[in-house]
Structure formats: structure tokens, C-alpha cells
Design a binder for these strands. Structure first.
Lengths: 133, 133
DNA sequence: ATTGACTCTATACTTAGGTGTAGGGTTTAT
DNA sequence: ATAAACCCTACACCTAAGTATAGAGTCAAT
């Protein structure tokens, strides 16, 4: 199939497919005489893999790594699990940060008892001037 | 004080101070004859404000907005609270996404029962090829 | 055989928040 | 008075993951 159809099926833009190829995420496809890329079902799967991996938080660099682990003969399933664990740690720490932000924001919000007061003397803005715990 | 000292006190780089000035986050400072910027304690506070606001998740664009609300005469404390609420929603939705990723990753992790199996047949990679629920 | 839709390459642009560099001028301490 | 340390502007570069564009060539249907 041609690039347009692959893109359509895979719900990505044509430029994204070419971008993935440039990044080495998709094997260089064979070409017609005209230079047109010829894709196959394998490429549809490959893009699905990439998109799924992205949706669980992997970057394209990390996905490149996962894909090469897949073909390295000495790589084991345990090696994959290691990457999963690392990503779990990433995500946990992001959650932690966000939860802390949430807490601080809720505390700040409560600081405002007079919604009609001029913003100039808003206790929220004032506390941003000094300390945040 | 000169830019280097402001940067030192504020724990930011000199270039960052100039960058904030370019973005309009810091008022244009007066200059000496030589062209050197002259900063004051107010600017230290301003950078503190920016850094605190960043640490609770506001972008520099949003901080610019907060700063202008602060000086608009008709703006009220309630207007500030609105921004806090919007940011709280942002953050909640980011947390939600991350928690979902975490769940999926943990499920994937459990799928691997044979850590020494070759990665080629790793059930984790296989599920990325097909479906993720 | 021509038109419209598709594809090709190469290059630049996007967002966000900076960071780094080149090529100069200034200040300060000795 | 000279050297180190600082400051100036203007510009390019960085990451991440694309998106957009120009200018050219190709394919499919009428």
C-alpha cells in the first residue's frame, strides 16, 4: 500500500509516517520505480506498536530501544520488564509532583475568603511573593 | 544591583533573567550610562513569584496573565481563584492520565511470567502489537 | 490527454523554557 | 594600567514530536 493509505489506516499523518521512517522507527520501505514507498501490513502493526507504547508513556527514543530489544537475540523478557519498571518509576514520580502541586493549589484557593476584593491585595498572589510550603 | 547578583540571589541564570525581561515577565529595568541593567529588591520578589507559580504548574504565559490581573484595577480576588481552579483541573486531568498509564503498565508487567524467555516472544511486546485496554 | 489527487525531497517552523556563543564594551582590584 | 570578571546585543541552538511548505514528479480516472 502507499503512504496515504497506511496513514489513513493508522490514524497518523503522512508526514508522521515519514518522520518515523527518518527516526528509524519504521524499517525503510521498498520503493516502486517512481520512488513511491510500498508499505505492508507489518508497517500497520509497527505503527500500532508505537502508538500503544506512546500511550503508556514511552518516548520515541525509548520505543526505538524497545524495538531493538525485540530483535536482539540475547535480550530476554526480563530486559523488557526492566524498561517497564523504569517507566513505572517515571510515572510515579510525575504523579507525586502533580499531587503536591494539587495540594498547594487547594491550600492557596482556601486562602481567599473575599472573592470581591481587588486582586491587588489577593492573598493568593501575596503568598506567591513569599513562601510556599 | 547588577544582573549577576540578581541571578545569584534568585537561583536563576543571567540569561534567564534577560529571557524573562524579553518575555515581559520582569519590568524593563533602568540602565546605567554603560547600558548595564539596574535591578532592585522588587525584581528579586518578582522572580520569586514566577518561580513559585511555576512550581505549582503555571506556564510563563499563565504567569504573565496572573501578573497583569494583579495590576488591573477591576480584577478581583475571584478572578485569581478562577485561574487556580482551571489549573487544578489541568493537574487533575494529568494525574488521571498518568494513573491510567500506571495501571496499564502494571498489568503488562504481570503478563511476563518467564523473565528468561527471549524478548522476541515477550508477551509484553506482543500486547503492544495488538490491543491495550 | 488532461485534471485532480497523490507522492517525492528538502527545509523550515511549531511550543516551552530556556541555554550557549560570538564579538564586543565596562568595572574593579591590584 | 592592565587583567579578571562582569555586562551588552543578537543570534543560534536545545529537546520532543511532530507539522507545514515549496517545488517537482506520478498515478488514476475520465
Amino acid at each position: 500500500m502507499k503512504i496515504g493509505q497506511l496513514a489513513l489506516i493508522s490514524h497518523v499523518k503522512v508526514e508522521t509516517v515519514r518522520y518515523y521512517e527518518r527516526r528509524g522507527l519504521i524499517p525503510n520501505p521498498p520503493r516502486r520505480e517512481s520512488g513511491y514507498r510500498q508499505f505492508s501490513q507489518k508497517d500497520v502493526e509497527r505503527i500500532r506498536f508505537i502508538k500503544h507504547a506512546q500511550s503508556i508513556g514511552f518516548t520515541l527514543n525509548e520505543i526505538t530501544e524497545l524495538l531493538s530489544l525485540k530483535v536482539e537475540p540475547e535480550a530476554t523478557c526480563g530486559d523488557i520488564t526492566l524498561r517497564i519498571d523504569a517507566k513505572l518509576n517515571d510515572i510515579k514520580s510525575k504523579i507525586k509532583t502533580l499531587v503536591q502541586m494539587e495540594k498547594t493549589l487547594m491550600k492557596l484557593k482556601k486562602a481567599c475568603k473575599t472573592p470581591n476584593a481587588p486582586s491587588e491585595e489577593c492573598p493568593i498572589l501575596e503568598s506567591l511573593n513569599t513562601e510556599l510550603e
